[in-house]
Design a protein around this nucleic acid. Sequence first.
DNA 1: TTACCTGCAAACTCTTTGCACCGCA
DNA 2: TGCGGTGCAAAGAGTTTGCAGGTAA
Lengths: 147, 147
Amino acid sequence: MKSCLSVDQIRTMLRSKGLQVTSQRVALCRFVLCEADHPTVDTVKLWAEENDVQVSQATVYNTLNMLVDAGLMKVFRFPHSDRMVYDNNVHHHHHLLDEETNHILDLEPGQVNFYAGLSKEWDISEVAVFVRAKRRSSKMDTARQNI
Amino acid sequence: MKSCLSVDQIRTMLRSKGLQVTSQRVALCRFVLCEADHPTVDTVKLWAEENDVQVSQATVYNTLNMLVDAGLMKVFRFPHSDRMVYDNNVHHHHHLLDEETNHILDLEPGQVNFYAGLSKEWDISEVAVFVRAKRRSSKMDTARQNI
DNA sequence: TTACCTGCAAACTCTTTGCACCGCA
DNA sequence: TGCGGTGCAAAGAGTTTGCAGGTAA
């Protein structure tokens, strides 16, 4: 999760991308670029209602998709859900689903080592790894698994 | 892709799962369990129309979901599409999307080696790997990549 | 002032469900 | 004949779009 951005930083960021600054956009950006963790449209709409940010569902969709188009967020469709999931981590990474809380955690590429025995005729452009797991204890270590 | 099943084999298979045998089910099973390659409901409905198999869209959905419930197929939701994708390979495996044809190919677990540097507190229950790739030549070899 | 953003509602897409009819056993 | 499968249509869920009015620059 990124450290929180000020309103001015958000305004500057939007302008630098050629996007108009509106109160709804600033409010949503502060939430989805800083506070929120893999939000869906529902999460964002609910947050807005609870924080007296007046915004319609359509504007939530439009704003999130605008941020994706501007390269400030990514959007994913995961196997466990039929909702679009937005992510303020725009770098290449993978995902882990905590099966108990249904929360998504980012896995940095360095945490995942992958070897594909593919024919060289295949030019891999992207690999997406989605791990489902449950927490069991707190010992730090690494685990090797064949999948 | 499995070798094709006879009508009698399909009837026997359905009965052994306690499922009633109907002409629509036999026809759809022959297609989705043998011929079809990662079909969606649309693919199946289109095939039915082109092959004079009279079946409604609802029955296609119901039949495919019945086969999934019976353990004869799996269903996936992939990142590149908002459609359910059905698969007659019910064993654990991964997927490769041919970005040019949009076809899905199965990757057997042995083709994919995966090492996750997770804390031991995580008990991994499933790993799904989704590879996007383009074909480039025909030399057989293996490729190592960090993801 | 003008371009474009917002809110609302309706449209759209994909999937599921309800119900009368029909077919398998 | 009876259970349950089928077809049709409608309902649901999630997302996108069209348009009138409002706001930023």
